[in-house]
Simulated assay, not measured.
Amino acid sequence: MTIEARLAELGVTLPDAPAPAANYVPFVITGNLVHVSGQISQNEAGLITGKLGADLSVEQGAAAAQRCAISLLSQVRRACGGDLSRLVRTVKLVGFVNSTPDFTDQPKVINGASDFMVAALGEAGRHARSAVSAASLPFGVAVEIEGIFEIR
């Protein structure tokens, strides 16, 4: 099954890749790897903001992480000239969770992105990962995730 077919089965339409918010590029291709800059939690209504452990539940955080994963795939599609069939696998995700000092469920929040990658890409979506806490994130967003992807 193609990635597009899996996404359609999941009811997900990839948006246009978000533009950078500062002086950096959205991705860098080196060899067969695409390094995607951090994608912040946002949906059609705008930014998903808040602090885990205070304003947002783990489930809301996981949903925000899934939105970051959707943006990551949008950037990979752009890096591949619109052809997602060039995507070989997700190599690594690094997730940052805007959370209170006593919040310890960062892995459960970033599972929203990891679970989505596996659902969308199958075994090619399995990846290495880090999930860390941040005292704050740009624009007050709940989650930011960067990724490394292998392409052909």
Results as ranks from 00 to 15, higher is better:
99 S>E: 07
75 Q>A: 15
93 L>V: 10
115 D>R: 13
89 R>H: 04
60 Q>G: 03
114 S>T: 14
84 L>P: 08
101 P>N: 14
135 A>K: 13
80 C>L: 01
57 S>N: 04
66 Q>W: 03
57 S>E: 02
116 F>Y: 12
96 F>Q: 12
99 S>K: 14
70 I>K: 06
96 F>G: 00
74 S>R: 00
80 C>T: 04
123 E>N: 13
108 K>M: 12
114 S>P: 00
117 M>I: 08
89 R>C: 03
97 V>L: 07
98 N>Q: 09
98 N>M: 05
86 R>L: 13
138 P>E: 15
134 A>M: 10
133 S>Q: 14
109 V>D: 04
64 A>L: 07
60 Q>E: 15
71 S>P: 04
79 A>N: 13
71 S>F: 12
71 S>L: 07
124 A>S: 14
122 G>H: 09
139 F>R: 08
136 S>E: 10
119 A>W: 03
130 S>H: 13
96 F>Y: 13
114 S>E: 07
77 R>C: 10
127 H>E: 02
73 L>R: 05
61 G>C: 02
121 L>W: 03
101 P>C: 11
82 G>V: 09
84 L>D: 11
64 A>E: 07
66 Q>R: 15
125 G>W: 10
125 G>F: 12
96 F>P: 00
126 R>E: 14
119 A>G: 05
58 V>Q: 00
124 A>G: 01
88 V>Q: 12
76 V>I: 01
104 T>I: 02
108 K>D: 09
129 R>L: 03
92 K>G: 06
62 A>W: 04
71 S>D: 09
126 R>L: 07
97 V>M: 04
131 A>K: 01
106 Q>F: 08
62 A>P: 08
117 M>D: 08
81 G>P: 08
81 G>W: 12
80 C>H: 03
70 I>G: 12
83 D>V: 06
94 V>C: 05
72 L>G: 10
116 F>G: 13
95 G>K: 06
67 R>K: 10
136 S>A: 15
68 C>E: 10
92 K>P: 08
120 A>L: 07
138 P>M: 11
62 A>G: 12
79 A>G: 10
91 V>R: 11
124 A>H: 04
88 V>T: 09
